[in-house]
Design a protein around this nucleic acid. Sequence first.
DNA 1: TGACGATATGTCATTTCTGACATACATTTA
DNA 2: TAAATGTATGTCAGAAATGACATATCGTCA
Lengths: 90, 90
Amino acid sequence: MKTAKRNKLEANGWKVGNAADFLELSDEESAYIELKLKLANKLKDARSQRRLTQKQLAELIDSSQSRVAKMETGDPSVSLDLLIKALRKN
Amino acid sequence: MKTAKRNKLEANGWKVGNAADFLELSDEESAYIELKLKLANKLKDARSQRRLTQKQLAELIDSSQSRVAKMETGDPSVSLDLLIKALRKN
DNA sequence: TGACGATATGTCATTTCTGACATACATTTA
DNA sequence: TAAATGTATGTCAGAAATGACATATCGTCA
C-alpha cells in the first residue's frame, strides 16, 4: 500500500495495520472507504453552510451529536445508509 | 399518497398500510426507497448483462442467492451499503 | 402435464449498526 | 488562565442487517 493512502486512511481512524503484516486493502475496500469519506465531507460542508452545530443537526435528523461526529469523520461504525439519509435530511 | 406511487411501492414489498390509516411516507422515505429501487434495478441489469444466475453472483460477492434476490427486488431488509458493495463487485 | 432451473419469500442465529451517554479534546472569549 | 461552546472518541444495550437454509413460485421445455 502506498504511504499516502495509508496515511489518509489512518488519519480517518481506519486500522491499517503495520508494514510487517503486509496488510492490504482490496480495491473494493478502498473504494468503499473513499466513497464514505466523500459523503462525510459533503455532510460536514452542508452543515457548515447552514451554520448548524452537530448537536442541532443531530436533533433535526433524530440522531445524537456523537453519531454526527462519527458520520463526519467517516468512522467505520457508520453505514452509507446513515450518511445518505443524513445528507437527504440535510 | 398518490395511487401510482403506492402501487409502485407495494409491488416491491413495502408495507404502505391502507387508506383508512392515513399512512404517509415522508418525502425522505420515498426518496430513500426510490434510490434503493434504482440501485436494485441497476444490479439486476448488470447481472443480466453478464449472464450470471443469482446463485453465481452470490458466490462472487460472498452472499447467498436469497439475498441477491432480495437486493434485486429492493427488499426492506437490504441496506444501501450492501447494494453499493454488490454493484462495485459487480 | 411434470420436471427442471431460476428467482422469490419466510425465518433465524449471528453480526453489525444505532442512539445515547460519559468524557476527552479543541477553540474561542472574557 | 478559566469557562463556555463545539467536536471527537469509547462504550454499550437494543435494533437492524446479514448469510444461510428451507420452501414457494415462476418460466420453459420435453
